[in-house]
């Protein structure tokens, strides 16, 4: 049996790790579902208040969904990633985890499975399911508004669209790397720090972004002050090129940080 990778051992490890991560995972997904339900619940309250004696669906009733989906998703993935290897910060648990007969690659792939694959799939599934349930309920309530709907074909579909049917902005695809990048950062933080891994990683990230932003603005300002751009048809004038660079940098950084996280896990001493 290979000492680097064996598929049976990987499946055994995934099943075994559920014991340690399962509880926190289910709790986190429960909290996420609760938060989503709260937002929809408030929308329902607004809907009830607005449609009492009126035939109009309040404008922007479900506009919160996109932002909620992005920020709650980021929070969920960072929480799961930032706590996955936290056991390695406590000696007794670290010994228990380190000595389980599985390769470091298998241990890392199991981490990726729980913090990326399972995390993203379950989050998207929970969000879409709750959205479907609430929006379907709101739509049944609009039966009373059928007169309005009959006059304006597509009114209900526009006002109470399912989240899955919303139009995705053209450039959104350039940011699909973000969950993976955040996963890589927080996974590395959970290995690198011995305690308070999530908080320390978050603070490090904020400090890094602040310094990086300040330096970029300062350097660019210093370099370009008093000068005028004379180039025409510049490469950077096309918006999508900037996004492409952003995407490439994000993917490279995520892969690099995953690599560092793997090496840190490999060399972790107890």
């Amino acid at each position: 049996m290979s000492n680097t990778f064996h598929i049976n051992r990987l499946f055994l490890l995934i099943a075994r790790q559920w014991i340690s991560v399962g509880k926190i995972y289910l709790m986190a997904i429960g909290i996420v579902a609760g938060v989503i339900a709260c937002f929809y619940g408030y929308a329902l309250y607004e809907f009830n208040a607005a449609t009492a004696g009126s035939y109009y669906i309040p404008q922007g009733l479900l506009d919160f969904r996109v932002l909620l989906f992005i920020f709650l998703g980021m929070f969920f993935i960072t929480i799961i990633s930032g706590t996955y290897f936290s056991d390695y910060g406590q000696k007794p648990k670290a010994i228990f985890e380190t000595l389980i007969p599985a390769s470091r690659l298998e241990k890392f792939l199991t981490a990726i499975f729980y913090t990326v694959v399972a995390c993203l799939i379950s989050y998207i599934a929970v969000f879409l399911l709750l959205d479907f349930a609430f929006v379907s309920y709101l739509r049944t309530r609009t039966a009373a508004l059928s007169a309005m709907a009959a006059d304006d074909v597509g009114y209900v579909d526009r006002s109470l669209a399912y989240f899955i049917n919303l139009n995705i902005p053209k450039n959104a695809k350039y940011f699909y790397f973000l969950p993976f990048l955040f996963n890589a950062i927080f996974l590395l933080g959970s290995i690198a720090f011995k305690s308070f891994q999530y908080i320390k990683t978050a603070i490090s990230l904020i400090v890094y972004i602040a310094i990086w932003s300040f330096l970029t603005v300062y350097i660019m300002k210093t370099l370009t002050e008093g000068s005028v751009s004379v180039q025409q048809h510049n490469f950077w004038e096309e918006e999508h090129r900037i996004f492409q660079v952003f995407l490439s940098a994000g993917i490279t950084l995520a892969i690099l940080l995953w690599g560092i996280a793997f090496l840190r896990l490999k060399e972790k001493e107890v």
Partner: peptide, 15 residues
């Protein structure tokens, strides 16, 4: 893994 599957370690502080 082939070595770890041949080691039982019972630490003083365990989990």
């Amino acid at each position: 893994p082939s070595l770890l599957s041949e080691i039982s370690f019972i630490p003083e502080e365990f989990y």
